[in-house]
Nucleic acid binder design. Structure first.
Lengths: 307, 307
DNA sequence: CACACTTACGATATTCGTAAGGATT
DNA sequence: AATCCTTACGAATATCGTAAGTGTG
């Protein structure tokens, strides 16, 4: 007997239980796909390893010893537990079970993500999904805290813990009423919007920040400032002014009275990044969703105007 | 990945948990007494075996994957359970734990067994003892039913399930008062007792059966018939008669007014047998007590008269 | 003498350690 | 340059199957 350096394998336990059940070396050996002498040696090695004789055997009879009976209980339970552990693990690997948590900008979460998640869920119905629609800072926090596997946010990571890669570039569009002077254009420029009454989003939104950077505040004729894009849509529809929003939010403005026109403003792009922890790799489930997101990523130019 | 023929060993799990804890191949390898490359190969083989990547590793960092974290829980529990199973088993093997059940004739159980058990218990205090003091038939039943590991009884086994070996031969002694005519003899014969008033045990006792066989009933002057030997002792002491009992019961008659004299009756022997199941081997604890019983067995001639 | 476990032994696979390679800080 | 994981490869070890051995009913 080695000094407590016993090395018992799952196969050993299976051999043991097989012999305990069949009480016959020859048949148990066949069950384990081993020659009978090899099987015999295996059992002997196991007995040495645990330090106790497990079977009383002569040429006619094979019986568990009292100690063997005790060990059989343990061995059976161990095999069962191991099997369960392995099943769990393989369920994860085959994506039959699992969990993915993502943090996504509200615009993407509402407009683009649902179809992607639907596709994902249909392919892997056993995987639990956790979506947080949050602004950039909270997205980053969630990834950093391990509460999200990855995030789609509009700013790069601030710390070295996260990696970021460009996911898509969200270009801006004019939104106006169908009867507006610019409604028929294929493109519009910032200059053409300078004197238009403008419906703004709150200063805290990333959209507003981009716009303030491009159209310096003094130039635009601000009519009002709102928090929700759907409210902005209502205001524009009522003829109170125009607005400018990134392509990914245009789904808020799909309405027969409204028209969207791509904005000609080369530098004016809201970049969206895919953020994830630098050291903590993605789980299989998370990686799968990650890959699907990349595969289904919105076209870089943004969707055409619905007009 | 093999088709569900995974063979994982305890050593693999230990390596896995070591690496999960240390997050460093070199140190974990040392912990497992392996060269670092061998350890690396072992981990890779384990990952292949379970079919899932368990660690994310580059040259600078080793981290569990999400799947690895799940498996760590299982592995830890499995190792713990295995350790417990092994400890239990080795406790049995080293006789630090266990249980022995014996069925023993009342005479042996009261007179001879206590000292043997005391010795046994001192040597192996962790082993639980179950003693049934029962007559021959019940002793046999208990062994056959698996309720006793072995028995000391005064008849051979009736069935082929049990093996019996002669344990000791219990010879008969006269018991009389110190002032009795035969009290001074070194030996007495059956003839010398023929006319003595005789205190009998009940017909069901094995002692009585031996006596009835040797001294045919008509010849003895039966004074009374009792169930308990200690009552017989009292009657003899009161001068109501003599009796004849086997050596192993003489402890009932140790009294200043009583004398015991070996009986000269060659064929008259109560044989006591050690009985055990033919196929079911003895547990380590049982075998140990068995061996001690044989070692401490009463001398074949029976003890000298205390006179 | 037929069946079932054990021993013997040469062949095959695995596993090991050393040394070299490659990547990251 | 130092650290740490991986690859390469010959050597040591373990395991396997065939065949002979042994004991029991």
């Amino acid at each position: 007997m080695q000094i407590n350096q016993s090395n018992v394998s799952v196969r050993d336990l299976r051999a043991f239980t097989a012999l305990a059940e069949l009480r016959n070396f020859t048949r148990a050996a066949k069950e384990c796909n081993l020659s009978q002498p090899a099987f015999s040696a295996l059992i002997r090695a196991l007995e040495d390893s645990v330090g106790v004789r497990l079977f009383d055997r002569d040429t006619r009879k094979v019986e568990l010893t009292a100690e063997g009976r005790l060990f059989l209980e343990s061995a059976t339970r161990l095999l069962q537990d191991f099997g369960l552990a392995l099943t769990d693990l393989r369920d994860l690997a085959t994506r039959r079970r699992g969990r993915v948590a993502v943090a996504v900008l509200p615009a993407l979460a509402a407009g683009w993500l649902p179809d992607v998640l639907a596709e994902f869920h249909q392919a892997y119905p056993g995987i639990e999904l956790d979506v947080a629609d949050a602004l950039a800072d909270e997205c980053i926090d969630r990834v950093r805290a391990g509460k999200a596997d990855f995030a789609l946010a509009s700013s790069r990571s601030t710390s070295a813990e996260l990696t970021s890669e460009l996911f898509c570039a969200d270009r801006f569009h004019l939104v106006c009423r169908r009867d507006h002077a610019l409604a028929g254009r294929r493109r519009v420029t910032l200059q053409q919007l300078a004197e238009e009454p403008f419906i703004h989003l709150a200063r805290s939104s990333s959209v507003r920040q981009h716009i303030d950077q491009a159209i310096w505040p003094g130039r635009a004729r601000k009519v009002m400032e709102l928090d929700q894009l759907s409210t902005v849509a209502g205001m524009v529809r009522a003829g109170l002014g125009i607005t400018v929003v990134p392509a990914l939010t245009l789904f808020h403005f799909r309405h027969p009275e409204l028209v969207t026109v791509p904005l000609e403003a080369p530098g004016m792009v809201r970049e969206i990044f895919l953020l994830r922890s630098r050291d903590r790799g993605l789980s299989i489930a998370a990686r799968t969703l990650y890959e699907l997101c990349v595969l289904r990523k919105p076209a870089m130019r943004g969707p055409r105007s619905p007009a």
